[in-house]
Design a protein around this nucleic acid. Sequence first.
DNA 1: CTTCCAAGAGACACGTTGTCTCTTAAGCAC
DNA 2: GTGCTTAAGAGACAACGTGTCTCTTGGAAG
Lengths: 221, 221
Amino acid sequence: MTLNGTLNGERRRRGAELETALLDAAWAELTERGYDDLTYDGVAQRARTGRAVLYRRWPAKAELVHAAVLHVIGSEPAEPPDTGSLRGDVIAALQQTNSTRIVMAVQLLTRLGDYYRATGVSLGGLIEAATGGKNPIMRVIAERAAARGELDPVTITERVLRVPVDLFRMEFILTYEPVPDSVILEIVDDVFLPLVNAGRVPTGSHGSSRSAIDSRSQRKS
Amino acid sequence: MTLNGTLNGERRRRGAELETALLDAAWAELTERGYDDLTYDGVAQRARTGRAVLYRRWPAKAELVHAAVLHVIGSEPAEPPDTGSLRGDVIAALQQTNSTRIVMAVQLLTRLGDYYRATGVSLGGLIEAATGGKNPIMRVIAERAAARGELDPVTITERVLRVPVDLFRMEFILTYEPVPDSVILEIVDDVFLPLVNAGRVPTGSHGSSRSAIDSRSQRKS
DNA sequence: CTTCCAAGAGACACGTTGTCTCTTAAGCAC
DNA sequence: GTGCTTAAGAGACAACGTGTCTCTTGGAAG
């Protein structure tokens, strides 16, 4: 009646079969215990094997976790929705992301516990802090621009105001390098400014200086 | 000649002074060793105190790291730039974020090493995977929309195409909950669609059905 | 059947963990 | 100042996880 997780004389697994068992075990340990408390020992026992088998493949804890995450993700395809309209398609695509893999993501991130918290802070909160909470900076900038007549305060929603910062953050998170100026210019010139002006052009009357943005759109083909 | 990091009989620190020393030490250890290899022992020695002092304040490693990160961030104000134009202000604000705190963020995230890698995958790559690499889904959607005449393929840059997904991801990362439909609608109706149409209205000629988006903008005040 | 590789199993020294003890310095109230 | 209270400083402790190494043996390939 050995309680340890070894297969006492049972069939010996190899290759993909074993690897799947290892990664499943790692994922299970990860979601149950969280990153800090995940141990090679625990994973090995759950997979009914020895630590050496794990170390041979993933010398570092992060690599093991990494592999386990990718392993679990490596399922579910993702069919582009086709609702018949651009608006409907985009909405459906976002919702689809929401309902399928996002479930795993949430589970991962919440159960990742320790592993997540500090990084959550560093990514979200840190950059949050860097740009200043509910970004008063953008608020100030927008108000000054409104005073100059560069934008119409009522047509600019909170969401629109957040766009540059959010895109910037996302860029940073995905690349983990200082965001190059070319990307900043893209964000400002190809996204934010067209957005700010989108609500102004049609009415054609808010009559005000567009001079401040005239230098735009001569960068990219 | 004791090499351990205890203050043999020196002044005994308290309160804020001690706390600062502890967090500075934690930050130093974090940046030098990375998260996985950061130990209470190491931090205590560097701060010339005992582990108990640390455990009293931050019972878990993640909390200690968390506190250290916040401690280091808790400096540098962030003055909103004032260049005289909306465009200039926004660009300056993003660049400012880039050059000041982002340096620490990069250092943190890269040195965070292990701690970061898997989460980088889970946040960036995971959601990346969820929406499919260089998001072919959005590509497909856009192509179909272009075929219907809903958008002009040449005016839609890669950047614009990425906007909905990026904003969605960012929302998720910051809230760690499934993104509510209201936000999805905001992203699509207040940002993406105005953006897609921004390049079309002025020319007023691409003559095509705008019917697919007519149901927009009756949700928010 | 033989050869080869790696799985399975366990041993090992070492470092870290959390907790607990005891002392003594610092800070506060009177 | 004197005395009281709190927590810093220091060290001991068992328990545990870590990497690494060994050895045996089963599975796959020729």
